[in-house]
């Protein structure tokens, strides 16, 4: 094991489904018993799940939150393809063959005290996990902005946390984050009550524009969501000269770095590029390296 710290960091577990809740818009919240994954996962980590015997390959699913003490891992996913549709049919009590946790995590190490967490659609889970990690940490004053164009997979409610400089009427939040003391606001173009009418990046921009340079220097953006959203987030970050980490997805086969099937082009120098694996080199990347 000397000089091989990567060894034995991903766990193969037969994870019993503890609950599997269907939400609007074909979204599902899945909780499984997977104590090793729960004890080792970090925001950004995913699990590679054998969803059903009928499909050969596993499906990578982002982790939304964990309880290391209770040994469970929770996911939020949307049924968009054959794999996730089959996963949606799995019932509490059944076992899922699961590998995890996998992948690099979001790093809160820049010394910036104001993490801005931006999650869109099924990109919300890593942001919720990040909020869980930042919860109760006095060093950070995070703000989460979550967006969805289908009904949110939770019942939004007016926030109990005042956020200075939020547009009037933008009061809806994710209750879980609110209960954790993490300021949160929601965005959608669907006219949901209390939500910002527009994209998450528009709301983020409105809020960032109220900050002075000294305050901006404390902001770092963390984002996960559809590719166009991430591109817009990366552009916003570049415009305001803010560091930004994004979590990507790609079709995946092995999920452990063996096949190089899930790569994305990454800028490695002024004119140089490399292909990096989303599974183990990512899924979290510096936005400047992947949007250029």
């Amino acid at each position: 094991m000397e000089n091989k710290p990567h060894r034995d960091t991903i766990f193969s577990e037969q994870a019993q489904i503890l609950s599997h809740q269907a939400c609007a818009g074909e979204q599902y919240i899945l909780r499984v018993a997977a104590p090793k994954c729960a004890a080792n996962a970090l925001p950004g980590s995913f699990a590679h799940i054998k969803v059903a015997p009928a499909l050969l390959l596993r499906r990578p699913i982002s982790i939304m939150r964990t309880s290391a003490t209770e040994g469970w891992v929770e996911f939020l996913y949307k049924a968009v393809g054959e794999g996730t549709r089959l996963l949606a049919t799995r019932q509490p009590g059944e076992m899922l063959d699961m590998l995890g946790p996998i992948g690099t995590a979001f790093k809160f190490e820049s010394g910036r005290s104001r993490p801005l967490l931006i999650g869109g659609g099924v990109g919300m889970p890593p942001m919720i996990f990040a909020a869980q990690q930042l919860r109760g940490n006095d060093l950070f004053k995070p703000l989460a902005i979550l967006g969805s164009e289908v009904p949110f997979p939770f019942r939004p409610r007016p926030s109990r946390i005042l956020i200075p400089a939020m547009p009037d009427g933008v009061i809806a939040c994710m209750p879980l984050l609110d209960d954790w003391g993490i300021p949160c606001r929601l965005a959608s173009q669907q006219g949901y009550a209390g939500c910002y009418q527009g994209f998450v990046t528009d709301l983020a921009r409105d809020w960032l524009n109220t900050l002075d340079r000294e305050q901006l220097n404390q902001v770092e953006i963390f984002a996960c969501g559809p590719h166009p959203m991430l591109a817009a987030v990366a552009m916003l970050a570049a415009e305001l000269d803010l560091p930004c980490q994004v979590s990507l997805e790609e079709y995946m086969a092995c999920g452990v770095g063996g096949c190089a099937g899930c790569v994305v082009p990454v800028k490695t120098g002024a004119t140089s590029q490399a292909m990096k694996r989303v599974c183990v080199d990512g899924p979290v990347f510096d936005a400047r390296q992947v949007f250029f």
């Binding site: 091989k4 034995d8 991903i10 766990f11 193969s12 452990v256 183990v280």
Partner: peptide, 9 residues
Amino acid sequence: GEEYTRVEG
């Protein structure tokens, strides 16, 4: 040659 050794077991 080292990638799968990430997996415990």
